[in-house]
Write a protein that binds this DNA or RNA. Structure first.
Lengths: 223, 223, 223, 223
DNA sequence: AATGAATGAGCGTTCATTCAT
DNA sequence: TATGAATGAACGCTCATTCAT
């Protein structure tokens, strides 16, 4: 389905040498963003990290914003793949899938990249349209996994309830990195936290009762 | 109970005129951070927003870092006060207090400041010691409220369990701003989300069963 | 003969309190100039060293240049006094006076102030008229001492010869601070150097033979 | 014998275009230092004098200190070459070499650069390690010329005496710029001064008598 | 495809100076 | 007298970007 490994906004890099360089750039950019934050995310530092001249970096990316956009896409890609893999896994029941989604998100934040990348993305998203779009894409896709699981786990729920619960679970998972992420004070609670979260949120889905208000449209008729 | 309104790392501003200017600076700085993010949080922009010269801004804050630290303190102060107020409220039962803490955090993110400030703080905390310290202080104090409520709501829990559940609730609440915060796509779900969160997390506390491992020390004796 | 101890270009400081403050300022300014050099000779540092506000410092000296001028005068004063004292000393023969002038100049540069002050003065004199004027005054007065001694030590010399020799001795003495001054590598040679200089330059005066060219005007007639 | 014309602490400028620019920078920097002094020796003024942007100047020299160090080296180079040339000259007797060293130093200060540069160097040397090191290098090399000549002119002198006399001559020559240098009041005495100095200091060497204290070790035996 | 050179704007900070109190 | 507040220019330096080679 994918044409090239590296999805880019760059204009150059069609040759195999160019593809290589692009990967080098994106890898360096990711390191810089994760290590020193967006505030020190400079073309100079990226070029230096990638062991190339600023001139050449600019040759691949005419502007810093384009590079950032590509970088966000590349990093987000990785997380989308995790969700896809779980969704497609035929050996798992729906319950197991739900638990695994929750656990994988929390456990993943043991990585420095995860712990450092998301806060940068969130901060950027508040002031940068492209970052906001990338973030929206990521969370829509992430939620679509949960969205599909909820009605199968508890078919009695209205669509509105499903949306709300899905949003609630997603949102609740996002903050974990700051507490049990890489180098955080609560890091040693990470595994216990993952378990507790999996159990709690699964129960939220299973125990939810069809609300009378929101489902009224269809159910009121029957009553 | 408080002696001065403005807690500062500045060196100047002891006169009433100075206090006024300090407030103007911190207010301007908050606006800038919230509106354009830390990446565009410059002394010049702050001075311009505060309608003063850079020279005078530098007169009050010898370095940008000192200003940032003071700003973080001032903003964090506000949130600490919210928790304190709930804790001290004698008209509320413990259950109500717990629910109110949860709700107030989620509802508060309808404010642009809340929605924009925290991601900046989180991002900063990953690369800036002072910001990390400020964030730690904030969450410790926030959690201390929940920490005190949990054992009263469910006395059968071990201390370890309390800590874990407290951490879980805190972490789960932090991510909400990105989903139902100011101008976010899910903003219209904010109130429903607050209710759902309050119910869910309260139940986590009430329904938690004493774990056999950690509480064994005391309970094994009785058995 | 002197009216006030402190000769100033300031406008204020006529009260006794003011005189005290003026002395405090000039003393602080001298410390700053000697310790960190003219390049870091700032009103702020002077005010801080004098333990007063910049506002008050500016009250006494409306500009940095005025303060500098006063400072140069004050420091130069000290050296003028040394020469005067030797000149007036009735217990010394002319030969002894000459030697003492030479020795005192060289020995004086064991002081940090002397070693550090003069290079600043020389550098300033190249770009700052007031400094150049101060330096000229100092050297004219210093040379006037030698000027008066030379014809008495060797009456056969023409006035032109006296001027040249006087200039030669003065100039030769000025460079010593950089070699045997405070903290300089050759500091341990200071005393030997003083002796050698005294002997050498005294002999220059005593051994000089009336030149035929320059003295011709008067002497050619007699011949 | 030299490999490159420009000895630098810069990082850039390896191409021929870069070498040209480097020379332009160092030339401009020398002009600025000589014309307005270190106090007004700013990156902006140097860039302006070199007719380039500050950005480009900073591209060649990441810091002002590096530029200063390179400048000092370049200027000092020139003086070292003068001494070397005299030393190597096979048409001169030792006496002539000594006289020429003395004369060339004094006569050289008719140049504005010499007259203005050295006071800046001396002042800098008191507060700037790199400047102090440059100055030390210059004077050590200058004195090494004299050091080698003295024992040949008067073999009866002990090493201690040679060192002292060498130091004395060097130091005495250094102050001349302030009296007979470019634009100085005594400038018209420059040539006469050079002659007088040459004669005087040569005689100091020739007429010095072996001191009894320092040479005693070896000579006491023979006695 | 890659480099080094160059620009101009902007950064945080410091400066001499002025002014109200 | 003395202070603190305030200004505007300038400081050394870094930035994203452009361009010639």
């Amino acid at each position: 389905m994918k044409i090239t490994i590296v999805q880019t906004r760059h204009e150059k890099g069609n040759s195999s040498k160019g593809q290589e360089t692009l990967l080098k750039i994106l890898s360096a950019a990711r390191s810089v963003l994760v290590d020193v934050g967006y505030n020190a995310f400079t073309m100079r530092k990226i070029a230096e990290t990638a062991d190339m001249s600023i001139g050449n970096l600019s040759y691949y990316y005419k502007s810093k914003q384009l590079l950032l956009s590509d970088l966000l896409d590349a990093v987000i890609e990785r997380y989308l793949r995790i969700f896809d893999d779980i969704t497609r896994d035929k050996n798992l029941t729906d319950e197991q899938k739900m638990k695994q989604v929750i656990c994988s998100i929390i456990l993943d934040c043991e990585r420095k990249e995860t712990t450092h990348f998301f806060p940068e993305l969130w901060a950027l998203a508040n002031h940068n349209e492209e970052a906001a779009a990338g973030m929206d894409l990521l969370y829509e896709r992430a939620r679509s996994v949960i969205d599909r699981l909820i009605p199968r786990l508890n078919p009695s729920l209205s669509q509105d309830q499903c949306v709300l619960i899905s949003l609630f679970i997603s949102a609740s998972l996002e903050g974990q990195a700051m507490f049990v992420g890489y180098n955080k004070k609560g890091a040693h609670h990470r595994e216990a936290m993952a378990e507790l979260a999996a159990e709690t949120f699964l129960n939220v889905v299973l125990d939810a009762k069809p609300s009378q208000e929101t489902t009224s449209a269809s159910e009121a008729v029957r009553a």
